[in-house]
């Protein structure tokens, strides 16, 4: 659960951190991935969910390589050792081709699941932020009562498993009944709404903790100076402390985004067919566990690395000279 790594030092521990080699290669792959994903989503909404590439072609390729390899192995002549060696590669190519065939066939289904993963993540982080900002302000600047309430909320949520939280609101409180009105047609199922509520509640606590430590790293003189020109306390927090604190919180925020992408997979257990669940469905139909889990891993890797790159870009965009460099602040 990377969501909890809040010390400045462990922000180094971000999952992505850019690829070790070839940043531009990574960017190009990422751009291709997202271009494909967006086109795929649009075509699926338009009612076309067939693969973009012919599955049969790759299947044929796989069979062809395999047949050739088998033929090579039959050879008993002088070249037998060499052919045997080459056959090994041909078998490998055959495996790769059949993996590609498998991928091409099931990518549309996975793309559909990825849509919900993205929706859950974005909604969770956005709605979570709306709650997290007042929570963290209450935690740092509040009176005894508001501070304790914020603390209790944050610690209870962070101290219990997300899975249990989802079960409490979905099965325990049967929350989906409240969303029946908003889940017809193109709108998501009731379970998706419940999952969004769950991730919002959960993410709010983690984000509040990141923002709290960021707010605490804003020098106290900043608020004093704001008060000295006549800003009220709340205005001083809003116009002076938060703009700085939220910038400091970006590394923590990146962690939280990565956390949500990964843990949105738990929505599968409250019947949401997101990326993991759609993969599980495919595994159940095809029994090709290795292929499907390799694909899932690649999918999540792409999402997580994109998120990290994106947040790095955001950090650069909002950077202010001398701010966000945490030297001397630890």
């Amino acid at each position: 659960m990377s969501g909890e790594r809040s010390t400045a030092r462990t922000t180094l521990a971000r999952a992505g951190e850019g690829l070790p080699t070839g940043r531009s290669v990574g960017l190009a792959i990422g751009a291709l991935f997202w271009a494909w994903l967006v086109v795929r989503w649009v075509t699926i909404w338009a009612g076309y969910s067939e693969p973009f590439f012919p599955v049969a072609f790759f299947e044929g390729l796989a069979t062809g390589f395999e047949n050739d390899a088998l033929v090579m192995q039959q050879n008993t002549g002088a070249l037998a050792p060499v052919l045997d060696f080459v056959a090994g590669f041909w078998f490998l190519f055959s495996d790769v081709a059949s993996f590609v065939a498998f991928a091409v066939e099931y990518l549309p289904t996975l793309a559909e699941g990825a849509w919900l993963t993205v929706v859950l993540t974005v909604a969770g982080i956005a709605f979570g932020l709306v709650i997290a900002v007042p929570l963290s302000v209450a935690r740092v600047y509040g009176g005894v009562v508001t501070r304790s309430l914020a603390l209790v909320y944050i610690e209870l949520i962070r101290g219990t498993p997300l899975l249990a939280q989802l079960f409490v609101i979905y099965y325990g409180l049967n929350m989906s009944q409240y969303f029946r009105g908003v889940s017809s047609g193109l709108l998501p199922t009731t379970a998706v709404w419940v999952a969004i509520v769950g991730f919002t509640i959960n993410s709010a606590a983690y984000q509040a903790e990141y923002i709290r430590s960021a707010l605490e790293s804003v020098e106290s003189g900043q608020l004093t100076a704001a008060r000295a020109i006549g800003l009220s306390r709340i205005d001083g927090i809003r116009h002076v402390v938060l703009p700085q604190g939220l910038r400091y919180a970006i590394p923590g925020w990146t962690n939280e985004l990565v956390y949500l992408i990964k843990y949105s997979s738990l929505a599968a257990f409250i019947t949401v067919v997101e990326l993991f669940e759609s993969g599980r469905d495919i595994a159940g139909q095809t029994f090709q566990y290795l292929n499907i889990y390799a694909l899932l891993a690649l999918f999540y890797l792409a999402l997580v690395l994109s998120a990290t790159l994106f947040m790095g870009w955001v950090e650069d965009r909002v950077a202010i000279p001398g701010l966000g460099v945490r030297d001397g602040r630890e």
Binding site: S2, A13, A15, G16, V258, K262, Y263, S265, L266, A268, F276, G279, Y293, L296, A297, Y300, L301, V304, L305
Partner: peptide
């Protein structure tokens, strides 16, 4: 890779 993949996967 280990940090990018959901624990359930």
């Amino acid at each position: 890779v280990l940090r990018a993949i959901p624990i359930v996967v």
